[in-house]
Computed example of a mutant assay.
Amino acid sequence: MGDGLFHAERIFDGTVWHEDASLRVVAGRVAGIEPGGKAAEHLPGWIVPGLIDLQVNGGGGVLFNNAPSAEGIATIAAAHARFGTTAIMVTLITDRPEVTAAAAAAVDAVPGLLGLHLEGPHLDRARKGTHDARLIRRMEAEDLALILRAAQRGPVICTLAPESVTLTQVGELAAAGVVVSLGHSDCDLATARAYADAGARMVTHLFNAMSPLTHRAPGLVGAALDDGRLWAGLIADGFHVEDTALRVALRAKQGPGGIFLVSDAMSTIGSDETGFTLNGRQIFRAGGRLTLADGTLAGADIALIDAVRHVHRALGLPLDAALRLASEAPAKAMGLTDRGHLRPGARADFLCLTPEITAGGTWIGGGRVA
C-alpha cells in the first residue's frame, strides 16, 4: 500500500469535483483532498475513482473459462487495469463441474481482483444466450456446497435462474453472503419478486437473456426496474442494449437498488485477438462485436471505460453520473463502502482520466499499476 500526494487540474471524489487540487494517500487509503499542488506529483488529466466491473469474463488474451487459475486471473485483472478498472469480479460462464471447482479454487489475492462471479450453470435453457445448453443444469447439493465454500474465501456473485434453483437454495446462498443475481431466465414478475423475497439482490445484464417487459407481463425486466431491492447491471456497448432502452432504464429504475455498468468483457480486451473458443465453439470478433457463428452475441468487446464513454457521449449523461455508474454504483451493489469514491478513508484506487474519456494511468492502493 502506497503513500503519496497526487495533483490534477480536477479531482472527482465521487460526489463533487475539486478544481486544482491534490489527493493525499496514506497507507493505501485516501487521507483527504487538498487545494493546490505544492510538492505533489502532477498527473496530466483528471483524478477519478477507479472503475469496478462486476462481470469480467476475460482480458489480455485470456478467457477465465479456458484458464481457471490464479495466473489467468492476474492476466485478466492486469489487462483491465490498463483501462482504469481497479477491481473486477472475474466471471466464469457455464461450464463443466470440474472447471467451476477449479475457478473457485483459483481465487486468490491478485491485485485488482474483488471476487468471483459464477454466471451459470444453473440457468434456463430457453434463455441460454451464448451459454452451452448441454452444460446448463439444476443446482444440486454439491453445487450449493461449492458456492458456499467459495463465499468463505471472498465476495461471490451467483447468476442463476429460478427455473433451476429453489427458493430455499437462494435463501441459503443469501444467508452466507453470496450476492444472488437473477438472469438467463424466462421467469415472470411474480416469480422474480418471490426470489427477491428469498434473498436475490441483483439482476444480470438487464434486458439480455431474460423475459421482456410488456404491458401485461412485465417479466424480469419489470421486476428489475420496479423493485428497489434489486440492483441491475447494464452492458452499454451500443450492441447489447439499444440507446433508447438504456435511457428508459436509467430514468425508470426505482431505488435504493440502482443500475450499474458492466463490461461483460471477453479475452479480446487488451489483445489483438480476432477470435477465441468457448466450450469448444468458435467466437468471432468483428466490428466491435463478439458472436457465435449464428450471430448470437457472445460477451462484449469493451472495457468498462468504454461503457462510461458511451453513456456520456451517446446518451448525454453528465460525466459525473456516468462515472458513478461504473464506480460507486457497483460498489454499493456489493455492499462495499470504502470503494467507488475518493472520500477520506476510501481505498486509494483511482485513474487519471483524459478529456477523451480514456485511462491515462491507474493506481490501486496508491500504487501505480498501469
Rank of each mutant, 00 (worst) to 15 (best):
A224K: 00
G360W: 09
R96K: 15
N208W: 01
I302P: 01
L160V: 14
A104T: 14
D3T: 04
V170I: 12
T362D: 12
A245H: 07
E119C: 08
A21I: 04
G171K: 14
K38W: 06
A322W: 02
D124L: 02
A370D: 12
V30L: 05
F64G: 02
R289I: 14
T15R: 15
G275N: 09
H240V: 06
R247G: 03
L278Q: 04
T277V: 11
H18N: 07
R29I: 00
T75F: 01
G287F: 09
H18S: 10
L5W: 03
Q254A: 15
K253S: 07
R368W: 06
A232S: 14
L246S: 03
G258D: 06
A79N: 06
L173P: 02
E71P: 00
A102E: 14
R216E: 09
D188E: 13
L116G: 00
E9K: 14
P162Y: 07
V25L: 09
G58T: 11
D243A: 15
G275I: 07
I73W: 05
I33D: 08
A223S: 11
P355W: 11
P155Y: 09
G120E: 01
A194S: 12
L304G: 01
R10N: 13
H122C: 10
L116M: 13
G199T: 10
A236L: 02
E41P: 00
T296D: 07
G361H: 03
P68A: 13
D108I: 01
A103V: 12
G129C: 10
R247W: 06
L304F: 11
G45T: 10
M89C: 11
V180C: 14
A331M: 08
G14R: 05
D13M: 11
H240M: 01
D227S: 03
D124E: 10
A370Y: 06
G345R: 14
L148H: 10
L54Q: 03
T100I: 15
G84R: 05
